[in-house]
Design a protein around this nucleic acid. Sequence first.
DNA 1: GGCCACAACTTGACGGCGTCAAGATCTCCG
DNA 2: CGGAGATCTTGACGCCGTCAAGTTGTGGCC
Lengths: 202, 202
Amino acid sequence: MTKGPLKSRHHHGDLKPALIKAGIDLLEEGGINALSLRKCAARAGVSHAAPAHHFDGLAGLKQAIAEEGFHLFSSYLQGACDSGPQDPKGRLRSLCRGYLQFGLDHPGILAVIFGDQGLAGLVHGGGKEKADAYLTLRAVAAPFVAPGQDRLVVETQIWSLIHGFTLLYLAGEFGSPPPPIDEGPFAQVIALLDALHPASAP
Amino acid sequence: MTKGPLKSRHHHGDLKPALIKAGIDLLEEGGINALSLRKCAARAGVSHAAPAHHFDGLAGLKQAIAEEGFHLFSSYLQGACDSGPQDPKGRLRSLCRGYLQFGLDHPGILAVIFGDQGLAGLVHGGGKEKADAYLTLRAVAAPFVAPGQDRLVVETQIWSLIHGFTLLYLAGEFGSPPPPIDEGPFAQVIALLDALHPASAP
DNA sequence: GGCCACAACTTGACGGCGTCAAGATCTCCG
DNA sequence: CGGAGATCTTGACGCCGTCAAGTTGTGGCC
């Protein structure tokens, strides 16, 4: 049997993804501090030292979770800017809303993605998972890049604003627990991006 | 002797501030993960359980450090916007530069200030330390608040942008280790705030 | 001035954590 | 069928936060 009855296998078989899944569950249930190698192992039904054979310590597990989390993050961003008005400004606002919504729905995953080993690791390490999300941002930002302007500037303006706003939102700056998006200052704050003008319609 | 030769006191006397200072040192030397109650106690020359009599666990120590760190943070912001051009836009840009500079100089303290127990705690708890820094922001933002507009919106726009930008900067998004401010995209990104206009000069 | 109550700190222990070394077990392939 | 190698277990170590109980110095009260 290579994958027999999925039961009583002494060599679990799909341990790595199972550990990542367990880690994500822990993250969603108890936040970033509830994530530990030993608890992931326990949830996956293996011994406490088993994860060491699949990840380079806790940092490695967090990075693997971050890569997985980026998929979900990307789907939030893409889904958001595919819904709503399809003009450049409409897509930009929807992207930002999707960013904040992801933070509200999955604060633990956001913390891992942008945590010590998350973002820093992805910036340097492969980062192809991050690229998906960043390409969505790039596509949405493109109409606002003036001819001859560095697109990195516009992308960073958007990213900085929505990232900072999301973190302040999650920290309870506008109410604790954070209010629904439409009851917070989201629209008014993001309106700062109205200063950006589509290059084709100045 | 009430405060005799400062030596061999079995009842340390100034343990609480000494622990906070030790914690800040640890933070500056090894980042947020290097901070522990036991190491603070060792640095202060007391037993491992002594901190428990002065702080409510590790979270309490972090909050105390955050309050202390906010003083330094405030001085960075105030000092920055007091130097440089004194027109509204000049002060705004200087404030942002001071924010980023603080992050570059003291990333560990920034992490504690805006960490789990830091910002969240200060938002709800007293928060008078935070208020100093926020009042600086408020004063700098004031000229850009249009009549009838909610000043919270303008303040949040500024705070979100510089906060998000600083975190991306520290994460190595523009080079690792982060480049000096003038070699990064700081000026161009912060130029988004040029969309704000002093109410007296529309 | 002497004693006592109280605050400050120590000692010791507990469980949880990440990590390493060594051993057991299963699978696959020759 | 048998061995090689990957996979997982067991056990141990040191560090961590936290609690309970004991010790020591201090200031106030009689």
